[in-house]
Amino acid sequence: MMAIKRGSLYVVLILIALLLFFPIIYAFLVSFMSTKEVLMGHLIPKSFSLTNYIDAFQALPLLHSLINSMLVSIITTIGQIIVCSLAAYAFVFIEFRGRQFLFFLFVSTMMIPWEASIIPNFVTVQKLGWINHYAALTIPFFATAFGTFLLRQHFKTIPKELHEASRMAGLGHLTFFLKVVMPVSKTSLVTLGIYCFLTTWNSYLWPLLVTTDERSRTAQIGLRQLHAQENVTQWGVVMAGVVIVAIPTLLVLFLGQKHLQKGLMDGAVK
């Protein structure tokens, strides 16, 4: 009885996994097909030649847009970790008048969708001369309510005695923050980092608005252009582009999944 139950569970798991992972496998397979194979509707390519990948890199400055995406995601991740952890520290370890109110104000920004502010933000970024610069793609995302909230929840678990002891020893807030709080919070910092990297790498609307020349495009917008350029004829090349753009985030997800899940849950539950 147990064996039957276990066996059928595996069958269900495998079927569902195939179904869910199918789009990714499909993109991968099509990326190796010649135009003729695509037209005939094959499912498995005859050979795994890299022609489509070479074509994808030649059709567009795809390599350049990948570097852009990588740098933008890394800068945003580091910036967000610094800005949010500073704010979270103030909310947990410094007692000041109006703390509750300010925290409420911060959290309330979670209710405001980013889309609600794109029109004035576009004008602001234009006035600052940030169009086509990394600044436009990174700086507006350094401060987030989500990041502050997640880190605050973790900082709250640090024993207050540790803080008192460090004050007795004459340590200032900044030293305590850098030498004690940051090192013991590595887990949630990594969680926030992974989450931030994924969302920045995958963002679409804002990069579409604030980049106009090819050299400052991110990979997602590069993919949009590749699709517009090659759509009708070269599906293999477009799929090669999809695979190239998806690999970095899939890797980050596979390596950091346990971490991400644990960290996000701790934030949501506590």
Binding site: L13, I16, A17, L20, F21, P23, I24, Y26, A27, V30, L198, W201, N202, Y204, Q220, I221, L223, R224, H227, W235, V238, M239, G241, V242, V245, A246, T249, L250, L251, V252, L253, F254, Q257, Q261
Partner: peptide, 22 residues
């Protein structure tokens, strides 16, 4: 299986849309 089930989190809107377009 958990990794496979979570995998779409690692796929961007652009990459997913172009794949489904096909």
């Amino acid at each position: 299986f958990r990794t496979i089930f979570a995998s779409s989190l690692g796929v961007s809107v652009a990459a997913a849309s172009v794949t489904w377009l096909f």
